[in-house]
Design a protein around this nucleic acid. Sequence first.
RNA 1: GGAGCGUUGGCAGAGUGGUAAUGCAGCGGAUUGCUAAUCCGUCAUCCUGAAUAGGGAUGCAUAGGUUCGAGUCCUAUACGCUCCGCCA
Length: 429
Amino acid sequence: MLDIKFIIENKDLVKEGLAKKGYTAENIDIDALVNLHLDINKLKTSTQNKLEEKNRLSNSIKSASPEERPQIIAQSKSLGEEIKTSQEELAKLQEQFDNVMWRMPNLPSEQSPVAEDEEGNVVIKKVGEPTKFNFTPLDHIELMEKNNWSELERITKVSGARTYAIKNELSRLELAMHMLVLDKLASHGFTTITVPSLSKEKPLYGMGYLPFAQDEVYYMPSDDTYLSGTAELVLNSLHADEILSENDLPVLYAGFSPCFRREAGAAGKDTRGLVRVHQFLKTEQFVICKNDINESEYWHKKLLQISEEVLQDLELPYQVLEICTGDMGAPKYRQYDLEAWTPSQNCYRETHSCSNITEWQARRTNLRYRDNKDGKVRFAHTLNNTGIATPRILVPFIENHQQEDFSVRIPEKLQPYMGGKKFIGKNVK
RNA sequence: GGAGCGUUGGCAGAGUGGUAAUGCAGCGGAUUGCUAAUCCGUCAUCCUGAAUAGGGAUGCAUAGGUUCGAGUCCUAUACGCUCCGCCA
């Protein structure tokens, strides 16, 4: 959510920012919004003047003589009717205004490349080389079959399309990766927190999942409850409506949770295997910091660095993308994605997404802190990044580390979490 | 699922239907100077205003209702605590 005062003072900048994100005046009409705001203020002022008069009348009743009272009461009553009418009108206008405000995306950074869609994303860094094999490599599904690591077909009979069951060492590997990342985040000062996958509606608006991605989210009408697509949802609202002390900042969370996504817009894409599933496990990095762009950009880089370390620990070749304005989600100010080399598809595939949201979410959740310098209350900045998401990352992992005998090499950093094993797989003793 | 009690500022905590006490913390100011104390103001949202001057409205979990007037009375909902039931 943006600040209406900022919008009024920076109309052109706002229009330009919206345009970069692919919005036109037909989607969001800034001039109309500002006019609506001015109308609301006018009506507010006149309504408040009436309220002031009514308060005066009410307070005078106590000291009024018994003869005067009936007249004052009648006067106050009729003024009350007028006020009610004004307030109903005001509520109507306010709802129109809020509707636009809740649909307004964040403005992108000046640094973000300007383009319409993902074609405009810019590779800013490559680490490692695409893996070369001196045998014919298998894809992750074949590898899982060779090693008795999955139940992909049986499980769809039970749980439907885009679900997975993995077993034996692969199942343990999935959990080992989360432990590796949780330990890494703890060493960077993050608080480990396992959070519910259930959420009420309000947090979805707070994060920006609603109203922007309604089709993506599971809803359970019998309980008026949603299934969370990311721990970010819950962490972003955990401190909603609070005024933190600046001394509490930054708040660093390593949030672990099962995540659920309908993948409604992805029909036909990545239908087989572990790349795109309805339910997965994610360790999420989440930061609440001061309202200072240098501070949040520092944390943005820091989160990116941590997830790069994760891919380096897993010894996966990867690239870093700076996401362009048109491919960024509505909440985002600036975004990097990490993509790991995926041999079977001969390309890099997304494993991490790292975003600076600035104050856009904090305004929606009313998350603030008291500034030490002047004692003023300010909206915090929030940031998020994948720590690790499984099973998707298992795809590049087992494909890149596969051996000719179908076993899979375990990188050194991960070995302590896998009982010291250097390889896993059927033929490994 | 059932019953009872509760929800007041950043925190703690008063509050007979008639302008939200008080303490602590924070911020601003004044004053005195020995590691700080004392006093005053401020402390959330919004409108008005050139204003970081002043004035005003709102805010006691949320949404309604009763009333000239609601933190206080009524209804519903959410959440919390205690107990009963069920349970990994």
